[in-house]
């Protein structure tokens, strides 16, 4: 117990973090992307059924009534409000919080880099992400595959046309012994991706996977040519999921509908309903410029730079010592 006051990092690791933050700031300064600052506490939160936010009580609200505030899981809504206010290209390095367990790649409090590029589609943003990764990880240029391509290559399963029964059979064929049932097709695809695809891609250089199924669009727009898929991408490197980006959904009606679908799904899972971020929805009403945005886990990027085996090696005081 006596040792718990000590950081879990080395001096070398702390220097690497400082270098990384300086390099990122220089990268965006050169590209004239503005650093911004948005709140960690918000009245609204993410409705995604698989994300859980910390909440706390605020006793001094203007109405006098106790108010629930949420620690943000990503600065996405606030940054989009800035974009709606004509901020132009912006980035932020911020603490994000997720109410979930700690693990090799997870700490409930972590550092996120998020940036938005008006006028970029997701392919242009992938180009910029690739440049940043090459500069920080000293890798060669990343590979790019569609979600469909990696499923066909590693599992011989086409996720866009396979029947639910074929997806379920694929899970069984992978020798995945589930306790209980998976609630839906997307969960099965996510399990297959995590276990049978992620360990095989991006081993030498980072790998971008894009065109996720429309049912996993999150806040991405649907593809204009093929509405079965969304303009969403993820970055994988050496078994880690590093970043998630969207060609952003700008249509306020569809955004509200997706939030409400999330809440309906939460009800099915017996999870509480969550308040929609009305400031964010109002900002979309006023008009979000065409843009792409992406969030990258700084701690994971550091792990990969340092060849660390556990996130605790790059976070001074992980949650059990916090």
């Amino acid at each position: 117990m006596k040792e718990l006051w000590k950081p879990t990092t080395t001096h070398n690791g702390r220097q690497a973090r400082a270098w990384l933050l300086r390099t990122i700031r220089e990268f965006f300064y050169q590209r004239q992307v503005l650093e911004v600052d948005t709140p960690i506490l918000s009245h609204g939160t993410v409705t995604d059924v698989h994300l859980a936010a910390f909440s706390c009580r605020f006793d001094h609200s203007v109405t006098g009534a106790p108010q629930t505030l949420y620690l943000q899981t990503s600065p996405e809504y606030a940054m989009k409000r800035l974009l709606c206010a004509q901020s132009g290209p912006i980035y932020q390095i911020i603490k994000a919080f997720r109410h979930e367990g700690a693990g090799r790649w997870h700490n409930p409090e972590f550092t996120m880099l998020e940036w938005y590029r008006p006028g970029f589609d997701h392919h242009q943003l992938m180009d910029e992400m690739d440049a940043l990764l090459q500069e920080t990880l000293k890798t060669s240029s990343a590979q790019r595959f569609t979600y469909q391509e990696v499923f066909v290559q590693y599992l011989n399963l086409d996720p866009l046309i396979a029947t639910d029964a074929q997806v379920a059979r694929c899970v069984a064929e992978q020798g995945i012994d589930m306790v209980g049932e998976l609630p839906d097709r997307d969960s099965q695809l996510q399990l297959l991706f995590s276990i049978a695809i992620e360990p095989n891609i991006g081993q030498q250089n980072p790998c971008f996977v894009y065109s996720f199924p429309a049912s996993q669009a999150a806040l991405a727009r649907l593809n204009s040519q093929d509405p079965r898929v969304a303009d969403r991408f993820e970055v994988y490197f050496k078994g880690a999921e590093l970043a998630n980006g969207f060609y952003e959904l700008a249509e306020p009606g569809e955004q509200r509908q997706r939030f409400m679908q999330d809440n309906a799904l939460r009800a099915q899972h017996g999870l509480p309903q969550l308040p929609l971020d009305e400031h964010f929805l109002a900002a979309l009403e006023s008009g979000l410029p065409e843009c792409s945005g992406v969030a990258l886990g700084i701690d994971r990027l550091l792990m990969l730079m340092l060849d660390a085996q556990h996130i605790e090696e790059v976070i001074n005081f992980p949650v059990h010592r916090a």
Binding site: G103, W105, Q190, S194, A218, E234, E241, N244
Partner: peptide, 23 residues
């Protein structure tokens, strides 16, 4: 308890996609 039989956990790994079901 699993399938009516007591079990001892030997190893546990948490797998969580950023967007999606955790295992």
């Amino acid at each position: 308890m699993l399938d009516g039989e007591p079990c001892n956990i030997l190893e546990n790994e948490y797998v969580k996609p950023g967007k999606g079901q955790a295992f």
